[in-house]
Design a protein around this nucleic acid. Sequence first.
DNA 1: CGGCTTATCGAGAACGGTTGTCAAAACCGT
DNA 2: ACGGTTTTGACAACCGTTCTCGATAAGCCG
Lengths: 134, 134
Amino acid sequence: MKRNTWQREAVRAALADAGGFVSAQALHASLREGGSTIALATVYRTLTGLADEGEADSLQQEGELLYRACTPGSHHHHLICRRCGTTVEIEAQPVEEWARRTAAEHGFTRAEHVVDIFGLCARCTELADRASRP
Amino acid sequence: MKRNTWQREAVRAALADAGGFVSAQALHASLREGGSTIALATVYRTLTGLADEGEADSLQQEGELLYRACTPGSHHHHLICRRCGTTVEIEAQPVEEWARRTAAEHGFTRAEHVVDIFGLCARCTELADRASRP
DNA sequence: CGGCTTATCGAGAACGGTTGTCAAAACCGT
DNA sequence: ACGGTTTTGACAACCGTTCTCGATAAGCCG
Ligand SMILES: [Zn+2]
Ligand SMILES: [Zn+2]
Ligand SMILES: [Zn+2]
Ligand SMILES: [Zn+2]
C-alpha cells in the first residue's frame, strides 16, 4: 500500500515551487536550505515515483535527470530556458501526427517521441545581451 | 594542429560499421574483439571529438551517451530502433519551422531542439510478435 | 488509544558511465 | 632523423544515481 509521508509532500511542494525543470540534487539542496532534514536518497526515490505516476515530467540534460511538476495524464512537450530552467508546456498536434506518420512510413511500431526545444527565455536573453554588450 | 592516428581511424571505421547508435563502451568492446589494443579513454575522447566536429551524432538514452556516424553538416533527426539500434535519418522541414515559430512566439532566442522517434523497426517488431505469440 | 505489519526513510557504501592526470609514445614539419 | 607538440594508455578520480539495511513511522485492527 502507498503511504503519505511528509517527505513525499515536501518534495511535491518543492517541485511545484520550482516552476521549471530541476535536478534531484538541486531540489534536495533547496529543501535543506528551507530547514528540512530529508535525505538525498528519498528525494531521488520520490521523484522517480512521481515521474512513474505521471505527476512529474523528466528529461535528461548534460548527463543528469531533471524533473518538473506536471499536469497528470496529458501528453505535451516543453520549451525550456537553458539558463534559468523556466519551462513552458506546449502542445503540437502537427508534430504528433508527423511523428506517427513518419514512424509508420518506415515500418516502425510502438513509437514514442522526444520533442523538446531549448533556448533562452526573454528575460535571460535580455540579461545575456546586456552582459555581452556593456 | 590535429593529427591522424590509427586510433582515430579505427574509431571512425567501427562507428561507421555499427550502422546505428552505439555506446562508447560497446564500441570499445567491439574494437578489442577485433584485436585492437585501443584504450577506453581514447574511444571516449575520439567520440566526443567526432561529435564536436559534426562527424557523429550523439544522444542520451538511459543515462549513457550513444554515438552514430553521420553525414557532416546536415541538420536532421533520427528514427531509432529501441531493440537493435538501427537508425534512419529523417528530415522534417515542417518540424524545423514549427520549432522556430514556437520558440519565437514565446520570446525564446538561440533555440535548439531535440526531436527523436524511438520504436521497434520492422524486423524487431516481427521478432517480438513471434516471441510473444508462439 | 496501544500494538502489529510493513512501506518508507536515512546514512553511507556501491555502482556505472565518464572525465582527469601524467608519463610515455606517436606524429609531423623541418 | 630531430624536436616541439599532440595524443595515447593505464589508472585514479568524479559525479549522478541506486542499493543495502537497520531504524522509523503510517496505517490498520482491535
Ligand atoms: Zn531564463
Ligand atoms: Zn508528442
Ligand atoms: Zn530493430
Ligand atoms: Zn531539426
